[in-house]
Write a protein that binds this DNA or RNA. Structure first.
Lengths: 203, 203
DNA sequence: ACTTAAACTGAACACTGTTTAGTAATTTTG
DNA sequence: CAAAATTACTAAACAGTGTTCAGTTTAAGT
């Protein structure tokens, strides 16, 4: 291994170290409540060092973005086992919901947060996200092949489905279901999802 | 007018002054980019004074919440003119979209932001929001009376519709439509909305 | 005129992200 | 090997943040 390669590896190693620490802190404190100084302290370096490996705070958390999608995609394994496309689509929805409430912080950086998104459009970190979206379109396409969704465009319908799923989940996460009594909220979401999937089945 | 009443009026006057200034700054700088010091400077008082009238920064922006809903509700006037309930429902959706992109900052505090929401559950400021939600349920109910949405629960369906609308709008606002080429994004949303309303009409 | 109460503020506290000038350690070169 | 050059790192500062509190100014009541 040449000198240049080793240097690059060390550099990546340090980035990894920072990221790991940031990730850890992020999970039990959220984005806004961790500082560069926190991260620096955790890895026992000075705050200034972090700026040698990352442009700014956003770049650090944008990197977590990819991590979040990897975990999300790991939820899809179970979905892929299901043979019937329509059942698979519904399972995908169920897993989406499960992921949302199991990892609200991840959901936050993936789909809600404004901050770390002002990044390179053509970044590699988006590939993991694109993969998830491709998966949805693939399942919808297969449903079509099975006789569902006649005269409905795959891409558009996929976006419609995603919109519904995201809307429901983010309204819940961001506490916008106050109009409904606390005790009813979950049941409303469940019934709504059931209603939505029943509609899809009938298409 | 007694002394107590005048004092109360002065107090409200000062709150109004702070709110107005905050509102103004909020509209052209966003939430995170204004400070208590900014607001104080604008009304030519010391930052400490603001804390005599508001508990904290969140309380100030929570107050804007009500304002945002008032503006939203003003969009509903045009909707109410439409006789046919189904057409009215669709118009409501169109107006929702129009509002979202005309006032992204308002949409933000109303439906997305986390920060100013940690407030009193039973606050009066929620009434304006509840009104908007009632309006939706009312229109859906009327659709039912007109023979639509057979065997679908009004409350659940209303939530389903809202979820879709919010999902689509917030994905757009929070820049989560990157998977689609920039030039196509708006058309995808339009087509999706058309698709969604067509589905509703057929129910 | 004196007291009481209300309104307001300067200055501080404990933070924040970020930059820069300078130090310490390590390599490369003569 | 020693000198020079490069790299890795950091202390300290900058310019801000939300928030608190002791203390002052202003106004009202007696």
């Amino acid at each position: 291994m040449g000198v240049k390669e080793r240097k690059e590896r060390d550099r990546q190693g340090m980035r990894e170290k920072i990221l790991q620490s940031a990730h850890h802190l992020f999970l039990d404190k959220g984005f806004e409540d961790i500082s560069i100084r926190n991260i620096a302290e955790a890895i026992e370096y000075s705050p200034a060092t972090i700026y040698l490996y990352f442009k700014d705070k956003n770049e650090i958390f944008f990197a977590l973005h990819g991590e979040a999608f990897k975990i999300f995609n790991s939820y899809l394994g179970e979905v892929m086992l299901i043979k019937d496309p329509m059942d698979r689509l519904i399972k995908l929805g169920e897993k989406y919901i499960e992921f949302t409430f199991a990892h609200p912080r991840y959901y936050n950086i993936m789909f809600i947060m404004e901050a770390p998104m002002n990044c390179d459009e053509n970044s590699e970190d988006w590939q993991e996200g694109a993969k998830a979206h491709c998966f949805l379109e693939g399942v919808v396409e297969e449903c079509k092949k099975n006789g569902h969704f006649k005269n409905l465009n795959t891409k558009i319908l996929s976006f419609t489905i995603w919109s519904y799923m995201h809307g429901m989940c983010s309204l819940a996460l961001r506490n916008r279901m106050r109009i409904y009594p606390e005790a009813e909220r979950e049941s409303i979401r469940k019934k709504s999802f059931k209603q939505f999937t029943n509609l899809l089945k009938a298409l």
